[in-house]
Design a protein around this nucleic acid. Structure first.
Lengths: 349, 349
DNA sequence: CAGGCCATTGCATACGTATGCATCCACGGA
DNA sequence: TCCGTGGATGCATACGTATGCAATGGCCTG
């Protein structure tokens, strides 16, 4: 409570130099004599001085703050991603201002405004879409945006996703090759590109294998809705219920497995094969052993950070979309077709 | 890319008033004539003007930023808490700057310095302890700190935890009353107050019930270590292995359940009762049905935000410690003693 | 009608730092 | 010895906003 704020002026006084000199000591590349630097650093240490990032930002225009907006934090994939994002950005000298969003459009836009108020240098939108006018607004003030795990045909924002279409397609091939005859799908939130792309790829894959989609229900990436979806699909006599289901993400897939086994008494994978998407930590737990498509979070984060920095460093750079391949991880929740290549990739994200 | 930054001066020019007038329009409580306000707002809307939070912070000293440091994001309790914290603070007009920390002391201190560089108005440390000199430093610059889910005898920082001692004690009574004869404990990271308090309470409770601790191992809140702990404790003939185990948190407890059931082929709760601490989402999943002590995240968050705001608003206010009661949630992973009061609390956090 | 009071507004300055420009000094070459 | 050169430093200002103070105007009261 004693010294409150110590500024460069205080340090300057103690070191017997000008405030400019102090500033230069803390500005890499600025010209300072060794002797001066030593005196300033000594004085700074004595007073416990550290440059005020905000004041620095005012004049330089560089806040070193990245705004991150997230939703669905109960889906284990996102906390994991947030952690990695934060660490990767810290390593680059940036810091993360976090905003939680619900999924209503107006909320997203409002929150985005608030983010911009902090003069962030870039924005990462995880599992969130943005209206085109807000995208325009970000572009107007020169703040690059990159979508994480979501894609938009808007050419003005970069995006990083898994190759959801290819993933969905592979699941279809996998289930068809496994000899399943009543293959179904539980959809995520229909507004999400992950949902759309995974389903589109899945249906395309089924068509290629000459199969029809047996049944479909919507879980909406929501706990309660997913339970309902599982019941409506499976609470039926054997020949009327699916013998395989692709669930749009692991978070829902785990719920579905619980319902199948403990509410409906069905054997997985004996009576029903279940495949998810994400490879969240829970998917590997022994109680589930969920066969799923892995989102390579590390690579996605790397790509996201790279895309963002590209555009921060060169504001003229064109946005681009990255798609990371999503390998199928074979575990025990789905019957494996005879002769299906055992992935001998090491079980590391 | 056209207009880059639009400032209050631009708006003032367009509205034909002084920059001060614009500032006052955006400062609640400042005196402005209705007509002036209308003109200014119109001009602002036209230009898409929004006040620069950083510049505002420079003069007012109020950044409305709260620094949050977290670790263990793979433990579902923390993402949940982060989400609630962020939302609660947003509701109060604050925003959250997130920092990830490993558990090495030096790292924490370094990161804390960085947080302070952003002129945050308060700091929340979740599952992280801080050295007393850094605590002193925060006090010196007048930034209140509150520990979330961690306690320190340092009188200069507030803390919010569950009543871990009482919780541990109740588990001991519960397991003793259940007729278990070989009661054991799997510890968390020994540097954490949660670990110490839960174990202390547990041992006290056992003593009161005239029981000894049958065995103890350390999981350290770490996946791999927890697996090893489970094996060393349970990979033995029946009479040499525990018939009940209290695990210091749910994250480890779920891992232990997996090992018991799927690696060692033991029945839970038939052969072993398992009790955890936290009540993470996974604890309620049908595959686990973990009996556990609930950390009331909502209340903890409320208390944390309240404690922080108290001290921000009145810098002279004394720090204080809050302990939130942790009710035992009965599910299916532990034998329930005959006559044990069935909690009929609704199953809501 | 005069005086006074209040509401409203503009002016000037401050917040803490970075940086262009001018100044100063030392040193080296002619 | 003198001048040129370049490195180091100080001075002054700018970044965008908030706010104390003084000045203005209108309106109410006596």
């Amino acid at each position: 409570m004693i010294d409150r704020k110590v500024t460069s002026t205080h340090v300057a006084a103690l070191a017997g130099v000008s405030q400019s000199a102090v500033s230069r000591v803390f500005t890499p590349g600025a010209p300072v004599a060794k002797a001066t630097e030593a005196r300033v650093r000594k004085a700074a240490a004595e007073l416990g001085y550290r440059p005020n990032v905000l004041a620095r930002a005012m004049v330089s225009g560089k806040t070193r703050i990245i705004g991150v907006m997230m939703a669905y934090l109960d889906n284990q994939f996102y906390p994991t991603a947030l952690e990695k994002l934060s660490e990767a950005l810290q390593a680059q000298g940036y810091h993360v201002l976090v905003f939680m969003a619900s999924n209503t459009r107006e909320d997203v836009d409002g929150v985005l405004q608030q983010i911009l108020d902090y003069q962030v240098e870039g924005i990462i939108l995880a599992s969130v879409s943005l209206s085109s006018d807000v995208a325009a607004r970000c572009r107007a003030v020169g703040v690059p945006v990159v979508l994480f795990n979501r894609h938009q045909d808007d050419k003005t924002v970069s995006s990083v996703t898994s190759d959801n279409r290819a993933g969905g397609r592979e699941v279809a091939r996998f289930l068809a090759a496994g000899g399943h005859t009543r293959i179904s799908y539980i959809a995520g939130w229909e507004g999400a590109s992950t949902q759309r792309d995974r389903e589109a790829g899945f249906c395309a894959g089924l068509a290629e294998a000459d199969r029809d989609l047996f049944a479909r229900a919507v879980g909406g990436y929501d706990n309660a809705a997913t339970k309902v979806a599982a019941f409506t699909l499976f609470n039926k006599p054997e020949d009327q219920r699916p013998d395989a289901v692709f669930v749009a993400n692991d978070h829902m897939a785990l719920i579905v497995m619980d319902i199948l086994r403990f509410e409906l008494g069905l054997d997985v994978p004996g009576e029903v094969s279940v495949v998810g998407f994400d490879d969240v930590p829970g998917a590997a737990w022994l109680a589930y052993q969920l066969t799923t498509l892995r989102q390579r979070a590390n690579r996605m984060v790397e790509a996201t950070v790279a895309a963002l920095l590209d555009q921060i460093e060169d504001p003229g750079a064109a946005p681009y979309a990255v798609r990371v391949a999503a390998p199928l991880i074979l575990r025990k929740s789905a019957r494996v077709p005879a002769g299906w290549p055992q992935s001998n990739k090491r079980d590391i994200p």
